[in-house]
Simulated assay, not measured.
Amino acid sequence: MCEKCRQLFSPIDQTTACPGCGRKQKQPRLCEDCQIWQTRHEPQLSNRALFPYATVQEYMGRYKFQGDYELRKLFQKQFQSFILAHATGVLIVPIPISEKTLAVRKFNQVEGWLEGLSYQKVLEAESRDGLPQSRKNKRERMQLKQPFSVRNDWKQRLKNRSICLIDDVYTTGTTLHLASDLLYSFGAKNVSSITFAR
């Protein structure tokens, strides 16, 4: 990527980001969405995000939805450095995609960025009929039922583990909160998350 294009991708200032979801803002306080999550969900999930979604929307469209797998390399090192800076000594767990989605897309976009980094496939995603998450509105996303299960080989190995979930985009937070709930139900000690965008 040339320097002119690279300057278009401005990372979120972590010193002023929302401590709940990682949203770009001017003051480091819980945003309105996270204040709502605080009233309806325990324990709280802390997410950090590398980029504001508006900055990377076109890139995500080409990489994730148009299947340009080579584009993973543009931000691979930067995203991995961001993860390692904020997730030291924890189990790194990517959010999975269903077999149905994998059959269409041919790759998991999150695992594409993690190539070469140590991570574990702890979760599995169910294949469901209906609209994909990316085509649902906020209310429909918030009503999502538990789409994940823990792989059999990990069910006895999560107790007292600190885990960092990795996903592409934090939109409403529902996906990450549901994954977090599941991991806590299997005895995880602490669950946080990092996303490419917010």
Rank of each mutant, 00 (worst) to 15 (best):
S10V: 14
S10N: 08
I12A: 05
T16F: 08
A17R: 03
C18M: 03
G22H: 01
G22E: 03
R23W: 00
K26Q: 15
Q27H: 12
P28R: 05
R29Q: 14
R29D: 14
R29S: 13
L30P: 00
D33T: 00
C34F: 03
Q35G: 06
I36F: 03
I36T: 09
I36G: 05
W37P: 00
Q38H: 15
T39F: 13
H41S: 11
H41K: 15
H41G: 07
P43A: 08
L45K: 05
R48Q: 15
A49L: 09
F51H: 02
P52K: 03
P52C: 04
A54R: 06
T55K: 13
T55G: 06
Q57S: 14
R62D: 15
Y63A: 06
K64P: 02
K64N: 09
K64M: 10
G67H: 07
D68T: 04
E70H: 12
L71S: 10
R72Q: 14
R72I: 00
R72M: 02
K73M: 12
K73C: 13
L74Q: 11
Q78H: 09
F79T: 00
Q80E: 07
F82A: 08
I83F: 08
L84D: 09
A85K: 12
H86V: 05
A87I: 07
G89Y: 13
G89L: 15
L91V: 11
V93F: 03
V93M: 07
P96W: 10
S98E: 06
E99Q: 15
T101C: 10
L102K: 13
L102H: 14
A103Y: 07
A103K: 14
V104M: 12
F107V: 00
F107E: 00
Q109Y: 02
E111L: 03
G112D: 09
G112T: 05
L114K: 05
L114V: 07
G116P: 01
G116I: 02
Y119Q: 11
K121A: 15
V122F: 05
V122K: 03
L123D: 03
L123R: 04
E124R: 10
A125V: 01
A125L: 04
S127E: 12
R128I: 07
P132R: 09
P132I: 08
P132E: 10
Q133P: 00
Q133S: 10
S134T: 07
R135S: 13
R135P: 00
R135H: 13
N137E: 05
K138H: 07
R139L: 15
R139D: 15
R141V: 04
